[in-house]
């Protein structure tokens, strides 16, 4: 029962995309759109196949995904402890909240120019941009998560003998986890967009770079291929990794998403 409903949900999700591709397959030859303006389905398919065979697509995807993964992991490792500290200490929270507000507006591609000055063109600058995109959202959501844990739960833990360490590992972290997961999901969305922008400017490999270079040669089929890969990869990450993670915490524990 659950299986069939999942399949039908997937079909409902895919159907509009299939319609879009069908329209594309019809319109481009009918209107005789020039390849320099927009490619045909076949041209994009061919470009995809070629880039798979020569390994360039895999190279670009691996470069992009590894940057996002490393930047995100680093950001979460720093943001979660900071968010918890803000959640338990009113002083720390009062001091850092205005800074968080300011920098969360800046987070993303506004950092690219200075990041390239600090880290040079390439890996470091891009990971830094990803880090910024994820860090502030996750820190803020962690703070939110900790501050929404009912005081009675902390009281209950304390009266059962929990010390500082157990309070952190058994109450604050799991209590904030649904918000942390939501934060990571939102942050990764920002990061993925920031990544493509940063790769257009600050590197020589990656999906953003692939798009940008193709433009110089009027290779619209490579540009569109890149766009499809970028969108599909994000949907896969979101549906196969982030949504199940959110479900596992929020629904299992009966917590309401904030």
């Amino acid at each position: 029962m659950e299986r069939t409903s999942r399949i039908s949900a997937a079909l409902i999700f895919i159907a509009p995309l299939a319609v879009l591709v069908a329209l594309w397959a019809i319109i481009v030859p009918v209107l005789e759109v020039r390849p320099q303006i927009f490619p045909s389905v076949a041209a994009v398919g061919k470009a995809g196949l070629e880039s798979l065979i020569d390994g360039s697509l895999v190279r670009h995807v691996m470069a992009s995904v590894s940057r996002v993964a490393i930047g995100t992991v680093l950001a979460v490792l720093v943001a979660v402890p900071l968010g918890i500290l803000m959640g338990v200490s009113r002083g720390v929270s009062a001091f850092l909240t205005p800074l968080m507000r300011f920098f969360s507006v800046l987070a993303g591609i506004a950092w690219i120019p200075i990041a390239t000055l600090w880290f040079g063109y390439g890996f470091g600058a891009i990971v830094f941009v990803i880090f910024n995109a994820v860090f502030f959202v996750v820190a803020y959501n962690t703070l939110l998560g900790v501050s929404t844990i009912p005081m009675t739960l902390r009281h209950a833990a304390a009266s059962l003998g929990a010390g500082r360490r157990a309070m952190l590992t058994d109450v604050l972290l799991p209590g904030a986890l649904p918000n942390i997961v939501t934060g990571v999901r939102t942050g990764l969305g920002f990061a993925w967009r920031g990544l493509i922008a940063a790769e257009m400017i600050a590197t020589d490999v990656g999906l953003g770079y692939m798009l940008f270079v193709a433009r110089d040669f009027y290779q619209t089929e490579v540009i569109v291929l890149g766009m499809i890969v970028i969108g599909t990869l994000w949907l896969l990450i979101d549906r196969l990794l982030l949504v199940p993670l959110e479900r596992a915490t929020i629904e299992r524990w009966g917590l309401v998403s904030t």
Binding site: T152, H155, S159, L160, D170, P174, L255
Partner: peptide
């Protein structure tokens, strides 16, 4: 030991 009106069970356990 304390028993709370709101139960205060850990939802993640």
């Amino acid at each position: 030991g304390v028993v709370f009106q709101s139960f205060a069970l850990f939802p993640w356990k």
